[in-house]
Design a protein around this nucleic acid. Sequence first.
DNA 1: TATGAATGAGCCTTCATTCAT
DNA 2: AATGAATGAAGGCTCATTCAT
Lengths: 207, 207, 207, 207
Amino acid sequence: MGIAERRAREKDELRQKILSAASELFVENGFDNVSMRKVADKIEYAASTIYLYFKNKNELVAGICADAFGALNDRLEEIEGQQLPPLEAFLAGVRCYIEFGLEHPHQYRLVFSNPVPEQVAEEFREVNTLGLQALEHLARSIERCRQAGVFTTTDPEVDAYVIWMILHGVTSVIISDHGRHGMPCPSQEAIIDRALEMVLHGCGLTR
Amino acid sequence: MGIAERRAREKDELRQKILSAASELFVENGFDNVSMRKVADKIEYAASTIYLYFKNKNELVAGICADAFGALNDRLEEIEGQQLPPLEAFLAGVRCYIEFGLEHPHQYRLVFSNPVPEQVAEEFREVNTLGLQALEHLARSIERCRQAGVFTTTDPEVDAYVIWMILHGVTSVIISDHGRHGMPCPSQEAIIDRALEMVLHGCGLTR
Amino acid sequence: MGIAERRAREKDELRQKILSAASELFVENGFDNVSMRKVADKIEYAASTIYLYFKNKNELVAGICADAFGALNDRLEEIEGQQLPPLEAFLAGVRCYIEFGLEHPHQYRLVFSNPVPEQVAEEFREVNTLGLQALEHLARSIERCRQAGVFTTTDPEVDAYVIWMILHGVTSVIISDHGRHGMPCPSQEAIIDRALEMVLHGCGLTR
Amino acid sequence: MGIAERRAREKDELRQKILSAASELFVENGFDNVSMRKVADKIEYAASTIYLYFKNKNELVAGICADAFGALNDRLEEIEGQQLPPLEAFLAGVRCYIEFGLEHPHQYRLVFSNPVPEQVAEEFREVNTLGLQALEHLARSIERCRQAGVFTTTDPEVDAYVIWMILHGVTSVIISDHGRHGMPCPSQEAIIDRALEMVLHGCGLTR
DNA sequence: TATGAATGAGCCTTCATTCAT
DNA sequence: AATGAATGAAGGCTCATTCAT
């Protein structure tokens, strides 16, 4: 049975190899400028081999994103399970989101910055569900702060959305633009802290 | 010389025609789904004619972006020239930035959510410079608020950077994700207003 | 204007070259086993060049057939216009049909022997119309013989169809199988004559 | 040796399973639209397994045709063995031929409306021999009618050839064109009957 | 015997680009 | 200045086939 296991492991490894090569290329060049052949070349396999692991190009991107989001949701759920006080839970989740983006820049940008071409919509249903789950974590966390009187925010739904936009701005700028546009660029820690400060002020943090 | 002038004018007119036809197509279909042929068809010229005005597709795309960002900078300069009170000038500039992104999503993305720097084609040097100019407006405007005591921000450099990140988050989410991830998505106005409110709170707005 | 004419002529010549190379290949190998590349190779042009003359593979086959049938119908119409006595007109038409097949074996087989794959159905509407026209010539001609009392056939519709089947058998066997299956194969003239004799007997030829 | 026998029997059974699965698929989809993979799927074996029973796709296809023509010859021999009166034997054989074509259109076409001889793959030698055998039945049957005075045909060789052409015309039109060319197409029975009537008339049927 | 993994060739088609006119 | 003809490269994908196990 050792044999079967090894094979399964090897198969999974190649799948991962494809996913990571592809996600890198997609982010660097955009969906349309990545060919199955290029992905294959990058991992030194025949192009047709990829089709043994992913039904087509669409499912390949979808696979990349689904994997990444699965991981993010796992982490967020872990935090939620830790029963932290509301504000701490909020901050932990928020930082987790940013960190996730920084750790998986390719996947993050693929899902949140690269507009997914319409043709892929079909295959992205699952991915969107996963994305939504992540965002719902954020929403729940804000709501808990509000109910605990820590936030005086009047419209938690709008706030959740806006906070997400801010997190996204921070994450994606750090990922891809840090220092590129010539603005003096402060330390990563400084800007994350300052951004969260603004968010807390904005939510009317009580104490 | 009347003749030479007319010729020059005509030449310029066609160049503009190409740019605007291409720009329209790009907005409708995304950069990758537009071919030189389609642009040519739209203006009823031969595809090869475009090459008399633009060395290649990259230059055409760069031209479109340069046009757009030129316009943005013009608007920002106009605002700067209006001698508004600092806070109003800041808000006007900021809203102008967001609106620009929404009006020119493809160009915006090409400049600000770009392939990694190394990849940026030769032809985009100039365009990036124009993008940078826009950001410098923002920085100047914040500094003016600070100096006028409207903002109590202690580290204006960090703030400028963070504010830009937030604007970028708002803009790019609206451009490419609004509603796509299944989140209940509030009205565009509401979220822009709320985001700016957070920014102002965060900057310690006085009065 | 000489120049434009020459160009038009050249363009038409290449179109014809493509058509005849393609029809040869299609008949030899069947629709599915002919690639645009092979056609292109055969005439020593780039594959993409073919697309300047035919929108796609389907339209290429359709073009071949439409051309051939146009020619056949032209000939049949000429015969019809000659105002021959009914029996002579019938025979002339019938021989014309066979001769046409023998002169254009590729096109003939492509239309009548190679089953056109369903995918091409769309583009074959025009071709089918042309084919139908040819068959209607035959039907009209039989009907005239019947009305003139030369044929005593009772069901001219069935007869037209059956005669066409016979003509098709004769034509296609001569084209593609003559002598191949090991049967002693008599002279072409002999078998055509004998087949027509059977047809006339079958139609109850009066005198 | 019981073991070896069982193995041999099992081996043969799978071979037959492959042949019949493939045959079905070919009838449904045409030879070109069936892949080794699809055949394998249908019998729930791995694609590579087929190669243990057939050297390649050509051999598989040839096998299918050989099977079919074997069956045809069996039937024709059975008829020949029944000692029917010559005319009845002739008609029975002739109808059997047509029916075979209609039941196995792809195989029929592959053998009788084939690519030019040179192209016929090595693997088809045997199949073509089987086709020839079927035709020889026809020839023998006609000769018997002539010798019995049922046919007054003067040149039996030419007649055999012509009759075959007619049968082939009927068969192949019904197979591939029935109704496709827009002709009002009478019932299959009617046209077969009428065609045979013409043949009999043509052969100078006595009584 | 049977298989799963892998491949290379090939398919239709699109497109940016060149070049002679 | 403008064009039409032509091309080579590339892209997504399928498939027959091989081979180690």
